[in-house]
Design a protein around this nucleic acid. Structure first.
Length: 597
RNA sequence: GGUCGCGUAGCUCAGGGGAUAGAGCAACGGCCUUCUAAGCCGUCGGUCGCAGGUUCGAUUCCUGCCGCGAUCACCA
C-alpha cells in the first residue's frame, strides 16, 4: 500500500469507531485510487460498511467523509458518487511530496540492506550453438529482475550456469574434426559461437543421411539413430571426455573457448553481465556425490540394473532417475549439485532460477528431491517460470531454420533504428554519437518489446511490430526523455529556477500537472510491487503510462513560456522529476535513455 | 490419459471482488510561423471462451466444460 492508502485505511477504521461504535474487519475497509474520470485522489468503497452504519450508502459516505475532513488534516474535500466516497488530499500533501521527491537522491529506491543475498541464475546457455531469441527473453528478464531486486534493497548475485559438457558439444567436435579442415574463427571470420553452431547443424544433417541409409538397409528407425556411425563417434567422444582423455579435452577446451569469445560479444552488446559463472563440467560430479550420499542414507533407491532413483510416488509424482545404470549422471543430478554448491558459496536467502516454463516439472522435482535428501533450504528455491517466445508462424524450430539468432536480430534492429532516424531527419550515420544512438534506440526497442509482457505468459514475437517505434514502445519512452532533457537544457540556459522555494501554490495545478504528480507518486509502490512479483513488465507499463502522461502535459501546458515564476518552477520541477523517474525506471529494465534523438 | 498454465477489441497486450473494462497497432479524421510531430487530440472497435456457484456486487474467486500450449525420457 502506498502511504495515503494506508492512511485512509486507518482513518476509516477510526471514523467508523467514532461514528458507529464498532470496529470494522480489515476486509470491510476497501480503499483504492480514485479512477481518473472522477474527482478525487483516493476512494473508499462503502458497501461493506453499510452493515455497520445501517444507513444508505450516501448517508454513510457523507458521515465518514465529514468526519475525515474535520478530524484528519490530510483530507481536504470529498465527494459521494453512488456507493463511493472520493477523497481529495490537501494541496499541502502534494507540495510536500514533490519537494521530498526532488530532495531524495534516489527516489523510489531502497538502499541495499545488509543481509543474505538473493542469487539469480539466468542465461544458462549450451555451448553448441549461438544465443537465440529465447535466450534474449531469458537474459533481459534476468538482468531486469536483478536490477529490480537491488532497487528493493536486496543484495543480488547474478550467476550464469554454462552447460559446457555433454553429447551436444561432442557432436560439434566430431563434425568439426571430420569436416572442418581446421577451420577457426580467425580463418573463417565467423564469431566462435556461430562457427560451433555451424558444425552442430552439419552433424545433424550428415547423421540424418546416415540414419536414412541404415533404415533403407532394414534397420529400425530407433536402432539406426543410435547406430549411425557419426552418433557412435559422438558417444565415444563423450566417453573419452568423461575419462579425461587428453586429446579430447584439449579440443573441447579450444572449441568452448571460441564459443565463450562469441558469447562475450553478445552479452556485452545485450548489456548482460554476471558476478559468477558456473560450468557444468565443474559441478556435475558434485551432484553425483550428493546422490551417493542419499543412497547410503537410504533416501534414494538402487535398482537391479544399478541405476539410482528418487521415489516420489508418495508425493503424487513418479520415480526420477538420478544415476544411469552405467553410473553417469543426468541433468537433474547436475542441478542438485549446482544448487548445493551455490548454497554453500553464498548462503542465499533466496535462489531464483530464470528458466522457461517447459521446465516446471523439473524444478518441482528438483525441490522435492532436495527436501527428501534433507536440505531444508530447498524451499528457498524459486523458479521464475517464463513463457516461451513464439513467432507468427509458431514455435521456433531449428530443423525448419526459423530460429531467430540473437546477433542477427540486434543487427536488424540497429539497421531499422538507423533508417528510421534518417527518414525522420533526426540523426544520420556519421553524425557525432550517431552509432551510439542507433544502438541505444534499437536495444531499447527490443528490450522494451520483450519486457513489457508479463513474464509468466508466452509471448508472440512479431518482427514487424518489434521494429515499430511508435506507441507503446521503448523508443516512445526514450523520445519522451529526450524532450524532457531538451526542455531542461533550455531552462538552464535561460537561468530558470528548477526547484521549489515554498512560495508555490499547488492549488492551481491543472489536470495534466496533477496526472504527472500522481504518476510520480506511484513510482515507489510500483518498484515494490515489481520486486515482489519479480515482474519487469510492471515497470515497463508504468514507464509507458508516465511517458504518456508527460506527453499530454507537454502538448497543452507551456513550461518555458510560462511567465508566472512560481508556476514555471512547479512545472520545471515536474519535468525534472519525470525525467529522473523515466531514466531510473528504464534503467531497471536495462534500457538507456538518450539526451537527444 | 495425469499434472500445470493460458483464453479480455480484427491483431499484440494491460487491468483486476466494485463505478461507463483500458492502451498500442491496424482503419478513418484533425493538430507543426509557439518548449523535438519517434508527439498530441478525436472516431471506429468488447455478451472479458462457455455454463453453473459464492457475494450486496464477478471480467476478476470456486467448480465443470470447450479450445490452445507445456510437461509426464537412463534429453538438457
Amino acid at each position: 500500500m502506498t502511504r495515503p492508502e494506508k492512511l485512509l485505511f486507518q482513518n476509516t477504521i477510526a471514523a467508523v469507531q467514532a461514528l458507529y461504535h464498532t470496529t470494522p474487519d480489515d476486509s470491510m475497509v476497501s480503499v483504492q485510487r480514485t479512477r481518473t474520470d472522477f474527482e478525487g485522489d483516493y476512494t473508499l468503497v462503502l458497501f461493506p460498511l453499510l452493515r455497520i452504519s445501517k444507513k444508505s450508502p450516501e448517508d454513510t459516505a457523507a458521515e465518514i467523509g465529514n468526519w475525515l475532513i474535520t478530524h484528519r488534516e490530510e483530507w481536504e474535500t470529498f465527494q459521494v458518487v453512488k456507493g463511493f466516497l472520493n477523497l481529495k488530499l490537501t494541496t499541502a500533501y502534494w507540495k510536500h511530496f514533490l519537494q521530498a521527491a526532488l530532495d531524495e537522491r534516489d527516489y523510489g529506491v531502497i538502499p541495499i540492506k545488509k543481509e543474505a543475498p538473493v542469487v539469480v541464475e539466468y542465461s544458462s546457455p549450451n555451448t553448441n550453438k549461438p544465443l537465440h531469441l529465447g535466450h534474449i527473453r531469458n537474459n533481459f528478464l534476468g538482468e531486469a529482475i536483478c536490477n529490480i531486486l537491488a532497487a528493493n534493497g536486496f543484495p543480488v548475485v547474478r550467476v550464469n550456469l554454462v552447460n559446457d559438457r555433454g553429447i551436444h558439444i561432442c557432436k560439434s567436435m566430431v563434425a568439426w574434426l571430420k569436416f572442418g579442415n581446421g577451420e577457426t574463427p580467425e580463418s573463417s571470420g565467423m564469431k566462435g559461437d556461430h562457427l560451433i553452431g555451424k558444425y552442430y547443424v552439419l552433424f545433424d544433417q550428415v547423421w540424418k543421411k546416415e540414419v536414412a541409409g541404415l533404415v533403407a538397409q532394414g534397420l529400425s528407425d530407433e536402432v539406426a539413430r543410435e547406430e549411425a556411425p557419426l552418433m557412435v563417434e559422438a558417444r565415444e567422444m563423450l566417453r573419452k571426455w568423461e575419462q579425461g582423455d587428453r586429446v579430447v579435452r584439449d579440443l573441447w577446451l579450444r572449441m568452448n573457448e571460441w564459443v565463450y569469445e562469441g558469447f562475450a560479444l553478445t552479452y556485452q552488446r545485450m548489456g548482460v553481465h554476471f558476478d559468477k559463472t558456473y560450468y557444468e563440467s565443474e559441478t556435475y560430479l558434485l551432484g553425483k556425490d550428493l546422490v551417493l550420499k542419499g543412497l547410503e542414507e537410504k533416501k534414494l533407491v538402487r535398482k537391479s540394473d544399478s541405476s539410482v532413483w528418487a521415489d516420489l510416488s508418495d508425493e503424487g509424482l513418479d520415480e526420477k532417475i538420478l544415476l544411469r545404470s552405467d553410473g553417469t549422471s543426468v541433468y537433474m543430478t547436475q542441478d542438485l549439485g549446482t544448487a548445493n554448491l551455490r548454497f554453500l558459496d553464498y548462503g542465499p536467502q533466496k535462489m531464483v532460477y530464470v528458466v522457461g516454463n517447459e521446465q516446471n516439472y523439473h524444478f518441482d522435482v528438483l525441490q522435492r528431491i532436495l527436501h527428501k535428501l534433507g536440505y531444508d533450504w530447498a524451499s528457498r528455491i524459486f523458479h521464475l517460470s517464463y513463457g516461451m517466445v513464439e513467432l507468427p508462424q509458431g514455435k521456433m524450430k531449428s530443423r525448419e531454420g526459423t530460429v531467430v539468432d540473437a546477433d542477427d536480430l540486434m543487427d536488424a534492429m540497429y539497421e531499422t533504428s538507423r533508417q528510421m532516424s534518417e527518414a525522420l531527419g533526426k540523426v544520420k550515420a556519421g553524425d557525432q554519437g550517431a552509432e551510439a544512438l542507433f544502438s541505444l534506440v534499437s536495444l531499447g526497442a527490443l528490450k522494451y518489446f520483450i519486457l513489457k509482457v508479463d513474464p509468466k505468459k508466452k509471448m508472440l514475437f512479431n518482427p514487424e511490430e518489434s521494429i515499430d517505434f511508435n506507441g507503446n514502445t521503448g523508443p516512445f519512452i526514450q523520445y519522451t526523455y529526450a524532450r524532457i532533457r531538451s526542455l531542461l537544457r533550455k531552462a538552464e540556459n535561460q537561468g530558470k529556477r528548477i526547484s521549489l522555494n515554498g512560495d508555490e501554490d499547488f492549488a492551481v495545478l491543472n489536470q495534466a500537472e496533477m496526472a504527472i504528480l500522481k504518476a510520480l507518486h506511484e513510482y515507489p509502490e510500483i518498484v515494490r510491487a515489481a520486486g515482489e512479483g519479480l515482474s519487469p513488465a510492471m515497470i515497463a507499463n508504468y514507464a509507458y503510462d508516465l511517458a504518456k502522461a508527460f506527453n499530454g502535459f507537454y502538448q497543452e501546458v507551456p513550461v518555458l513560456k510560462e511567465e508566472d515564476e512560481n508556476k514555471a518552477a512547479i512545472r520545471l520541477s515536474l519535468v525534472l522529476m519525470t525525467g529522473r523517474v523515466i531514466q531510473r525506471a528504464m534503467a531497471l529494465l536495462g534500457i538507456a535513455v538518450p539526451e537527444r534523438m
